[in-house]
Each structure stands twice: as structure tokens, then as C-alpha cells.
Amino acid sequence: MAHIDYYFGTPSPWSYLAGDRLERIAARHGATITYKPVDLMQLFDRTGGVRPADRHPSRLEMRAQELQRWSRHLGMPLNLRPAFWPVNPAPSSYAIIAAQQAGGGDLAGLVQSFLRAVWAEEENIADDQVIRAKLSAAGFDPALADKGLFVGAETFGRNLEEAVAAGVFGAPFYILRDSDARFWGQDRLDFLDRELAAP
């Protein structure tokens, strides 16, 4: 059975635009997914990237145009200037990590709800009440927001180290564990699909 390591950031617009396509692809091919939220700002620092605030205006303008194009193409609403961005990714990431460990709910739905909260719903994903509401809506115990703090912090840091070691430098980033085939960006999901379909 194929397995996908999925590296992403909860405040990432490109991870948001991936929607549920990864999950549909995985289901089609009987693949499993491990969700690995990372601190993208630290990842950029470690791998030669540039934080958005430090990018040249021409790059920021191109990013804005591309986000709008993809938003329209995918039919997904996106606010280019969300009320709560930048935002601390740690609390929502800890919640995802704790939920993944606990099991029993809709983990993919939880991940997507945090991404949607930033880019389409004007919610603060670092706010405890928002985190609890998202956990509950996805079928998890909202108390995981507290219970998972230690394990979440430990795993969040480890995810960053694993990402750097695995060649990850942006998000979303998908790695097929068996073959080490790597795919960067929501616009590469079709290639991931083809890779899984190959004999």
C-alpha cells in the first residue's frame, strides 16, 4: 500500500487551494496519508527560501495574481488580505497532531477547516475557541486543544527536522514514502495521481 507524507502549513494559501484533492487521490489508489504540519517560516529559513514579508514586490505581485487565478479556477473563495494572517501556526498544528494521534474523527476535514478559516472565513486559527470548535466539528474531543500540547509541540518540531532532511522547502509538499517521489505545490497533484497509477 502506498503511503504519502503530506507536509503543509496551516496558514498556507497554497495548502488551502489543494482542497480535498489529495484525499480523493489517495482514496482512489488505496494510499494512506500522514499529515505533517510544519512552521513554514522556519522551513524557509532553513532551506534557502524567503519569508513573504521579505520578498521582492514583483514576487509578491505575481503571488497575488496566481492565488486569484487558482481561486477562480478551483471555485474556492480566497481573501488576499485575510484578517488573521500572518498567524501563529503552532496551536492549530498541535491540534492536528493530537487529533491524528487520537483518531476517530475526520482528520482531513479538520486540516481543511483550519486552512479555510484563514483564507475564506476570517477566523483566527491561533484562538483557543476557534481550535476547539474546529476539533468538535470534525468529530474530535475539543479538549485535545489542551491535552495534545506537549506531544504536539514535540512532534511539530520533529516534523520540521524531518521536512528539511527529506528535501521539503515549501508547501504543500507530498512525498511518496516507498519511492521518495516528491511533489511540490497543489498544482502537482495530477502528477502525484499519475505516479500512484503507474504499474
Rank of each mutant, 00 (worst) to 15 (best):
A90E: 02
L149V: 15
H3I: 14
R24I: 05
W85T: 09
A133D: 15
A108P: 06
A90K: 13
L110Y: 10
G104K: 14
L192H: 10
Y7D: 01
Y35L: 11
E66P: 01
R28Y: 13
Y7A: 03
G167H: 12
F191Q: 05
N159V: 12
D180F: 09
Y35I: 03
Y6F: 11
S179F: 15
I125L: 09
G170W: 09
V111Y: 00
L149D: 12
L144M: 06
R158Y: 03
L144R: 07
A64W: 09
A198D: 02
N88M: 09
Y7R: 04
A26E: 12
G103Y: 02
R158G: 08
I25A: 08
H56S: 10
D106L: 00
P199Y: 09
K134F: 05
R81A: 15
Y7E: 01
I175P: 00
E122H: 04
F150D: 06
P77G: 04
F140C: 05
L40C: 04
W14M: 08
R72C: 03
L107R: 08
T34I: 10
L192K: 09
H29I: 02
I96G: 06
Y35Q: 10
Q65H: 08
D180Q: 15
A145Q: 01
L115H: 11
Q68G: 06
L78T: 02
T32R: 12
A138Q: 01
G139E: 14
F156T: 08
P199T: 07
F183I: 05
F191N: 06
S58Q: 03
P86I: 03
E162V: 02
L74W: 04
A171T: 14
D141Y: 09
A181C: 05
P13G: 06
P91D: 03
N124L: 02
